Amino acid sequence: MIVWLDILTPKQVYFFGELGQRLEARGHSVFRTTRHYREVDELLSRRSINATSVGRHGGASLEGKLAASAERIGQLSKVINKLKPDISVAFASPEAARVSFGLAIPHYTVNDSPHSTAVARLTIPLAAKLFSPAVISKRVWRRFGASPEMIVQYNALDPIGWLRTFIPNPSVLSELNLDVSEPMVVFRVEEAFASYLLGHVSEQKSVTIPIINQVINNHENPPQIVVLPRYAEQIQVLRAVFPRQVTIPQNVIDGPSLLFFTSVFVGAGGTMTAEAALLGTPTISCFPRDPTIVEKYLIKKKLVYRENKPEKVAKKIQQILANLDDVRKSQREKARNIKSTMEDPIEVLVKEIEGTF
């Protein structure tokens, strides 16, 4: 069987990287496509995953997104028409969904983000099956055109797919010149170019910058601070605001390993917040809109603390660092117990894919 995987984000590099390996180990042929996007390009290279780059990221504007998507559909259609895969799998990729529908290829979409309404509306109606964590009710997906019969739920959050066999690599610390014996606070900036955050944030208007300033001002000897940007524009802004006080990696690093060794993680997105929480790292979410369904689940399980006000986030960080050993021990035990109840989402996909033919 030929399986086409479309990989668009860092999360998908991990998730579909694992899925592709499993499918190939079972004798299937896997063809991977991606688009030009800084973090994905670097992460694919770092993980030695070969993917054909088709098209580009559309940037922050609606017009840019539309133009890039339209161009990519045309480019992909030529590539995929020659390949003639038996099935396509993507994480809410409008281009993969449209090309698959146009070429009569069964399309499976994976989605844990109903708050991203634009891509859900563009992909779910064209999919044969929708895969989603069971914490998201089937009812949520009905408004996007999903029938109950097409929805396959798994009792897990998506990061479990790559964290089940994860072994932290301490080399990330030397790569960033960090001292594991000293407190370390890691920030992940928001997805400034996402359609669901348009008008709320931008590369110039970040929710994390005031929090970082507050943390620096609250400590006579501030902890080690690492800020993980998504786009080149964010790197420029962050380095202008923090020329010396924080570490801002120029290139993509081993995110899961860094999160494992982190004292406190502050996330303005979704995937790394879930990763950190499931690794048992003390985690604070400052996501700039209402909590997502996945975030609400993690808050309910007491794996994530939710706060947006800079002074309150800084105070919470201080409280955690003052009792770090006890807090970390408690969080890792909670995470371990919750992970033990979750199934492997990758295996669910493999069985469904193989069951199609």
Rank of each mutant, 00 (worst) to 15 (best):
V294S: 06
I353R: 07
F260A: 05
T52N: 12
I248K: 11
E347Q: 09
G27D: 08
L163C: 07
F166N: 10
T356N: 07
A146M: 03
L197V: 15
L321E: 06
D41W: 08
T273K: 00
K82M: 14
I235C: 07
D158T: 14
K334G: 06
V110Y: 13
E190V: 08
P210F: 00
E18Y: 03
I87K: 03
I2L: 11
A104K: 14
K316N: 10
K11D: 09
G74Q: 07
L23N: 00
E190D: 13
V189A: 08
A274F: 03
V89P: 11
A118F: 13
A276L: 09
F31N: 11
D86T: 11
F193H: 15
R38Y: 12
Q245W: 01
V264Q: 01
E149V: 01
S137P: 01
P94H: 05
Y196G: 04
F187H: 05
F16T: 06
V348F: 05
P288I: 09
D254C: 04
N337T: 12
L103D: 07
F187N: 03
A68L: 07
Y231C: 02
M150S: 12
Y108P: 06
Q331R: 02
G280E: 02
T281F: 01
L23M: 11
A67C: 05
S88A: 15
S257D: 08
L5C: 10
N337K: 15
V99F: 09
G161W: 01
R35G: 09
I2H: 06
L278Q: 08
A268H: 02
N111C: 14
I353P: 02
I248N: 08
F16M: 15
R121D: 10
F166C: 11
W141C: 09
E175Y: 09
P159S: 11
L259Q: 05
R35L: 13
R143G: 06
L66R: 13
P85N: 11
I338R: 01
I293A: 12
S340T: 07
K138I: 12
F144A: 08
Q250H: 15
